[in-house]
């Protein structure tokens, strides 16, 4: 199993599930047999993971335990399976969109305030998302914005995805900022915001960044707070954005929040002044998780500080 060095320690790295041949296989299935059959095949593969990939199941269980606290053992396993399956369906939607087989049928909620800020004002805007619904497909929706959009992400090790990202950067308004390295993309993020561009970050998983304890689903969970500090430093508004799917209509809904404007307080510890802003974001995330519990892909134990 490959290993990489992180924070001075060696850790095991997950073998990537979606390799290039896997992507090619599903593209072919989508083209030849359509979405319904692709979903059936994905369902079988997800069942295989449920039976044989206990690491993945274990990572999913903390969320399942908090979302369905009264569920029994087998009911929890069924929820894990559903989470795997719905995420696979979201990835298929994205693949179908990238192949040009389907559009991104979506409906925005609170879009106007975001569009005005992004296109008509000179301020940079920070969009804070989560591993929720089809966050990958949200990137496609942002291509319509008349503004440069920067997606902050960890360096992609999956060659197939990497190729797609490179192509996306060359042919659209999308730019990727990778957080590897000493400064975690800080120069690029700050420059983009000062130049009035959009910066998208994830607000639900910390990947080693500093966190703050906030009440989430009945217990203290640990969320990264750097996006809120950056917003305060650059004077940029921050909007939370969640993309969910209504399975009946096969339509996506992009829920944007009203803009938040964190303000730095002098001589007050960061954790203290930033907390109410993180709480606002987490409250929205919890509302969405209650509304669409099977689209919350929090595959990490965020209720443990050292997760």
């Amino acid at each position: 199993m490959p290993e990489e060095k992180e924070h001075g320690e060696f850790r095991k790295v997950d073998r990537k599930r979606g390799n290039e041949s896997g992507f090619a296989f599903f593209r072919l299935v989508l083209r030849l047999m359509g979405m319904r059959h692709a979903r059936n095949i994905a369902g079988i593969i997800c069942f295989y993971y449920l039976l044989f990939d206990w690491r993945a199941v274990k990572k999913t269980l903390p969320y399942v335990k908090h979302a369905w606290p009264d569920a029994g053992f087998f009911s929890k396993l069924l929820k894990v399976y559903k989470l795997f399956y719905y995420q696979a369906c979201m990835l298929l939607d994205r693949a179908s969109n990238l192949c040009g087989l389907s559009g991104f049928d979506h409906f925005y909620i609170n879009y106007d305030s975001f569009r005005e800020l992004a296109e008509d004002s000179e301020e940079g805007v920070l969009l804070v998302g989560a591993h929720f619904g089809n966050w990958q497909l949200a990137v496609e929706g942002l291509k319509d914005i008349k503004c440069k959009v920067n997606i902050v992400m960890h360096e992609e090790q999956n060659e197939a995805v990497k190729k797609h990202l490179e192509l996306n950067s060359r042919t659209s308004n999308i730019n990727y900022i990778f957080t590897e390295g000493e400064m975690h993309g800080a120069f690029e993020i700050a420059t983009a915001l000062c130049n009035g561009e959009i910066v998208c970050m994830m607000g639900d998983r910390h990947y080693g960044a500093d966190t703050i304890g906030v009440e989430f689903m009945g217990e203290t969970a640990y969320f990264p707070y750097s996006s809120f500090v950056i917003a305060a430093q650059t004077g940029s508004p921050i909007i939370s954005l969640f993309i969910c799917k209504d399975w009946e209509t096969e339509r996506y809904y992009a829920y944007g929040s009203e803009p938040m404007r964190p303000v730095k307080q002098r001589k007050v510890p960061i954790e203290e002044w930033v907390k109410p802003w993180v709480e606002q974001y987490v409250k929205k995330l919890e509302e969405m998780a209650k509304k669409y519990p099977e689209q919350c892909f929090l595959f990490s134990d965020i209720w443990r500080k050292d997760s």
Partner: peptide, 30 residues
């Protein structure tokens, strides 16, 4: 740290009026 780097970029852009675009490849400046 990296959050302080954000603050320095803001100072350069807003107080000194210089564009910091492309500085990610010239980290020696900092």
């Amino acid at each position: 740290d990296s959050l302080d780097a954000v603050e320095i970029v803001v100072v350069l852009q807003r107080k000194f009026g210089v564009n910091t675009k492309g500085l990610e490849t010239r980290k020696e400046v900092f």
